[in-house]
Design a binder for these strands. Structure first.
Lengths: 134, 134
DNA sequence: ATGGCACACGTTATAGCATAACGCAATTGA
DNA sequence: TCAATTGCGTTATGCTATAACGTGTGCCAT
């Protein structure tokens, strides 16, 4: 899995997400990047679209917001995972933890197969309260 | 689980969703109900909010749209299920099938427990292609 | 080198989704 | 009766996302 050469805008958006402590909306990213010349939502959305293609960013559907993929924090990029990703989202502090589970993935695969359904993309988001906020 | 006495607006919105063949956005519902006196989005959103509380309607986060809960179609309402619900959403015809699986639920419960996370609400949405559209 | 192509970018405008804030009317229950 | 609650209607606004247009740049096949 080759590392992608990011454009300037893509790097700026990714950096913003990486340094954030919680998911950011596209418009929040826009505001944070105004000093870097960003003027319009499309600049953000276009960068986000590519970053999602590259697997570097995830969209959280239940928040209309975006996070950097947590595997960026690994030094060993070979861990990069392309199966189903689940997110635990703390409604108090906003913290998001990303996790993968082969068992669950298998379980889902069987379920949809029973319905002769062909999966393109799976969203799993768990809203609740993290350890610190309980 | 007592059956709820729905208000006029709530009934209209629920009927609209029940008779739809695919998820509807709030604004689509609004348009369909203009002849019944609906004029503003809030009339729809307020009804949807209550219907969701009652478990009669689900929101699909990845579509910003709403569906009637499929257990409404059962004659035996005692089946009404309040655990985790997963949705298979066909991107071609829009059809949504709702399903429940104790195994998956269990699996998710264990995963979040390991992270000392307290779940409030779980979203599982599978986008893809249904049997007919393959 | 040059023409054609693909792609990122910038801008303006618009579409689509959701809620705030106000006030009124009906219901309920102390 | 009075207060609290709930639903309703309206206007205005805010947030999220994309359409449509044109520009510039790099690449590479001819």
């Amino acid at each position: 899995m080759g590392t992608h050469a990011l454009t300037k805008n893509q790097s700026l958006v990714l950096d913003t997400l990486t340094h954030a402590e919680a998911p950011l909306s596209a418009y929040t990213i826009l505001d944070k990047l105004r000093d870097h010349g960003f003027r319009a939502p499309l600049q953000v959305y276009r960068a986000l679209e590519k970053l999602q293609e590259f697997g570097l960013v995830h969209r959280l559907e239940s928040l209309n917001a975006f996070v950097a993929c947590s595997c960026r924090e690994d030094h060993d990029h070979s861990h990069h995972h392309h199966g189903v990703t689940a997110f635990a989202i703390c409604e108090d502090c906003g913290q998001v933890t990303e996790f993968h589970d082969a068992g669950m993935e298998e379980r889902l695969a069987v379920l949809v197969k029973n319905q002769h359904f062909k999966t393109e993309k799976t969203t799993i988001e768990i809203r609740g309260h993290c350890q610190n906020c309980t």
